[in-house]
């Protein structure tokens, strides 16, 4: 127990590898700014607004990636009861909510000059992503409500899976409902992008993925340290209770 205590005292979420990774991400963001603002050409129709693609598309991609990790972690918690997976699910959800918020924000900022509106209820991806955002905010609210560690993990895992299984249904319902879309087809697959734009977009995705990995490692380590801290507190509490038993004033005096 003492070992854990000292290791927590000296605890940090930093390591050589994450430091290097952090610098790579920083450098990558710098490169993305240069490429996105100066190298990539402006669009014939959308003019400069098209540059939003370099943040928006990677964010959207990472949103779904992060929430998939949450769903996987939730499933693994329910199956294996491993704290490791529980913390992975929680970490990915927190980071995913940030990406999701960024996706919605950049999307609506981009929408203003191109569609002439910040928000469009008729768009499948917008509305689906918004509902996913709300569900995951609920997931974090549930986690924040607290309780016994295992109970919190189980509740959160069920909500994580509930969000995952409902996303296809939500997507379908919005698609039928709107039956029209302002949203352009998938930017990557329709082949209309200029070479340099495509290259910048790929750089953007790579940088975002690296950032996700970097943030996940740090967030996971925080979660793990919190878990260890709770364990130390628990051991101390158990030791305290046992001391009560040992010092029992009535010890043996009752019939």
């Amino acid at each position: 127990m003492k070992n854990i205590a000292t290791s927590v005292d000296a605890a940090t979420t930093k390591s050589r590898a994450t430091q290097i990774l952090g610098f790579v991400v920083l450098f990558g963001v710098l490169a993305l700014i240069l490429l996105g603002f100066f190298a990539a050409p402006e669009d014939d129709e959308q003019r400069d607004a098209v540059r939003m693609i370099f943040v928006h598309v990677p964010s959207a991609f990472l949103t779904y990636a992060a929430f998939s990790v949450t769903a996987a972690g939730s499933l693994m918690w329910l199956w294996k009861r491993s704290r490791w997976w529980d913390i992975v699910a929680h970490s990915a959800a927190e980071i995913g909510v940030i990406f999701c918020g960024l996706t919605l924000f950049t999307g609506s900022v981009w929408g203003r000059p191109t569609w002439n509106t910040y928000w469009d209820w008729g768009d499948v991806r917008l509305v689906t992503t918004l509902i996913l955002f709300l569900m995951m905010v609920g997931y974090l609210a549930l986690r924040a409500a607290g309780g016994e560690e295992n109970a919190v993990a189980t509740r959160a895992a069920v909500v994580g899976l509930l969000a995952a299984v409902n996303i296809p249904i939500i997507n379908r319902s919005v698609e039928w409902w709107a039956n029209r879309t302002l949203h352009q087809r998938s930017s990557l697959t329709d082949g209309n992008l200029e070479d340099l734009t495509l290259f910048t977009l790929v750089v953007g995705i790579v940088v975002w993925v690296l950032f996700f990995v970097w943030a996940m490692i740090h967030r996971f380590r925080i979660g793990w340290l919190e878990h260890q801290l709770r364990d130390i507190e628990l051991q101390a509490a158990i030791a305290g209770r046992r001391a009560e038993t040992a010092n029992d004033p009535t010890g043996g005096s009752l019939p």
């Binding site: 158990i238 305290g240 209770r241 046992r242 001391a243 009560e244 038993t245 040992a246 029992d248 009535t250 010890g251 043996g252 009752l254 019939p255």
Partner: peptide
């Protein structure tokens, strides 16, 4: 059985 502090203190 006498319980104190979450453990058995004495039993008879």
């Amino acid at each position: 059985v006498t319980i104190v502090g979450g453990a058995v203190a004495t039993q008879a």
